[in-house]
Each structure stands twice: as structure tokens, then as C-alpha cells.
Design a protein around this nucleic acid. Sequence first.
DNA 1: CGCCAGGATTGAA
DNA 2: TTCAATCATGGC
Length: 287
Amino acid sequence: MAASEILLPVTDYDLAATLDSGQAFRWHRVKDEWHGVIGRHHVRLNQVPEGIHARASHLVEDWDFLHEFLQTRTDIAAVLGTFPVDKPMSDAIAACRGLRLLRQDPWECLASFILSSTKQIVQIRQIVALLCERFGEQLGTEGASHPALRIYAFPTAERIAAASEAELRACKMGFRAKGLLRAAREIAEGRLDLEGVRKLDYAGARTELMKLHGVGGKIADCVLLFAYGFDSAFPVDVWIERALQELYFPRRRASDKRLRKFADTHFGPHAGYAQQYLFHYMRMKAK
DNA sequence: CGCCAGGATTGAA
DNA sequence: TTCAATCATGGC
């Protein structure tokens, strides 16, 4: 039945931690509500005792897109049950129980993480917001008279492919414009099929994404984890490197190679989930 | 291996 | 107020 609001009855779901854990860059909190765009849906979410309450700015026939994005059907207890039983992991779980992995659109996720290179989360947000304002389709008409309230879809690969590198650089993305433009063209001109990547195994999918200029192992793993649901992907950035070093090798300094190998073997079949818990735990401790 | 690529933020002068 | 250090990933 079509409605503009719905209750998603989920437990063990920390909406704030999930939307603010560096996976997605377009969500912002207004009072107790999270505003965001999923595809062409503008939605507002808030955590209530019974689960997550969602409101859309339009009538929605099928809310499955929201279940999919938020991964409400994931059995989080089963995932946590596969984590290694050690002090760092149990501390991380205690610190952010209810943290989830999202399931994002591959293009939006890929583009966002190409822009994330050597940027901090606040800056990535700014760049992505500018990109959407300038190249994304405006959704609805609420903000027609009020620029600050305008809502935009994430720009399509085709639209980005039609932009110039200079126009993209004007969104403050610097040298990342080249990588974004080239990726958009690969997709728009049919040389890269992001849907086809779903059919590959983890190693094959990673190799495929890493062919793109500006996409190394870390960014490929972010996309594989946050958009494709490859739970074994374990993005290693400086935060995670520090976390592994401090939490698991406090006495002796471990090489990058050693840490990488540890990451690939220690955390089990849902290593990506474990990574997200460690990442969020370290960010919370740093604040 | 070591350098470089922008721009926001932080803290010193 | 200005200015310099810091941040952090991939290509070469």
C-alpha cells in the first residue's frame, strides 16, 4: 500500500552510528531526524523505541529500497557471533552495538570514495554536496524558493561524463576530478558494467574496480563492502592501521604487510563488519 | 622508496 | 590577522 511514512520494526539498530560512520556522506541530522536521499527518494528517518520511523516527501508504493539500503533484514547477532573473541573486538562491540553496514548504490559509492582520497570526512561531505547541487537532478519542488532546502539526487555517471574536468574541479575536488571523470566515462560509454561486478567473486570484483584511475585497494574495498555487500572486504586506511597496531600489536611495531595479512585472516567471514566496528570505535575514542 | 596532488581545519605567531 | 603544519590515498 502506498504511503508517505512507515515504521521499520528493527532492533539492535543504531541509526546515528550507522549514518555517521564514514560509509555514506549525504546524511545530516536536523534535531532528531536524519535527512537523506536514496536514489530518487528524499527521506527522513528517526529512531523510535519500536524501530526506525521513515517519512518520504512523496507517496511510496514499495519501501523495499529502504529495507535494502538500511539492511534491516541482516541478522546482526549472527554477524557479531562470527567475530573473534578478543578484548579489542568486545570493546568495539560494547561501544557501538547496533552499528550496521549500509547497502548503497554502486555508482554513488564508487564516485564518493574516489573523491575521498586523502580527504577527511567533513571535506568529502562538502565536495559531494557541491557535486549534487551542480550536477544532480533536483527532486520535488519544496525548495524552489529556498535554495538551502533544495534536494538533489546524486548525479548520474552520464551527467558527470558530460562535464568538463574544470567544472568538476570547481567542486573543490582537486586532482580527484580526473579519476571521477574517467570513471564516469568508463560507465557511460559501456566499458565498465557496475551491475556486472555483482556476479564476480570478491577477488575478481576487486581487480575490476582497481583498473580505474584513482581506485587502489582501499577504495575498491570500501565500494565492495558498502555497495556490493562483500562482507570479507576489509578496507585498511590509516585509522584501521593505527587501530590494528595499537590494539593488537601494542608492544612491537608491525609492518604494513603484517597488518594487512592479520586483517585478512583474523576477523572471519564478516571481516568487513568487524572493520566497521573497529573504525567507529576508534573515531569515538578520538573525539 | 619518496614525492606530489587541493583545501579545510587547527593552532601558533 | 596571517601563516604554517596537519590530514591521508594512489600514481608515478
